[in-house]
């Protein structure tokens, strides 16, 4: 095996990112939505620093760290899944995808625990601006995690049926790219909402 072919998952340069270009247009649109949301959060905070700083302390940092790790790990598993299919190993690809989905599930469980805690305290969207943003932003992201898991599951099913091969695996890349986007957004969301003060 030469050095070039050994670079699993990254064999050559190209003009286009891997995966269907349509998903990339969609990813950019999604990123735009989140980008606007982040900026609006920051500027709303500007007018209400004390309130934001005070209620930020009520968030569960441990949960946030677990979730960040869960998503990063999940993303990494997806990288492995892509590498596996590039070697034509469908079943290994499926296993990595299932592991990635499982990490997504960890995220959902932990996040639901946080929500349960907040809702148990009677907190809702109208409590104050901080909670409005916290709940809106994280819930919007939460929905994307679910969406990403559905996409990964669809890819996993097709891979399990042998629908992808070493040469034909655009679908895996497509699902992977979307999932990385979900991770990417959380990587900004986590410090912005939980830590920066």
């Amino acid at each position: 095996m030469t050095a070039t072919t050994a670079t699993i998952g990254c064999s050559s340069q190209s003009k286009y990112p891997s995966g269907d270009l349509a998903i990339w247009v969609f990813i950019l649109a999604e990123l735009l939505v989140f980008g606007i949301f982040f900026a609006v959060y920051a500027f709303a905070r500007m007018n209400n620093v004390e309130l934001f700083n005070e209620f930020q302390q009520h968030l569960d940092l441990n949960a946030a760290l677990i979730n960040t790790w869960a998503l990063i790990t999940s993303s990494y598993f997806v990288v492995r899944a892509v590498a596996a299919i590039k070697e034509g190993n469908s079943q290994l690809c499926v296993r990595w995808l299932l592991a990635a989905i499982a990490m997504g599930a960890v995220f959902l469980v932990v996040k639901s625990g946080e929500y349960a805690h907040h809702f148990g305290q009677g907190i809702n969207l109208s409590t104050n601006s901080f909670y409005m943003f916290y709940l809106s932003l994280t819930f919007f992201h939460f929905m994307h995690v679910i969406m990403g898991m559905v996409i990964l599951a669809a890819v996993a099913i097709k891979a399990h049926q042998g629908g992808y091969s070493a040469s034909d695996n655009t679908g895996v890349h497509t699902g992977a790219s979307y999932w990385h986007m979900v991770d990417l957004v959380w990587l900004i969301l986590f410090p912005l909402v939980y830590v920066m003060r």
Partner: peptide
């Protein structure tokens, strides 16, 4: 994440 996980490091232009 963009460069390595999404693989954009290999994409030109």
């Amino acid at each position: 994440v963009g460069l390595y996980f999404m693989g954009l490091v290999r994409v030109k232009g």
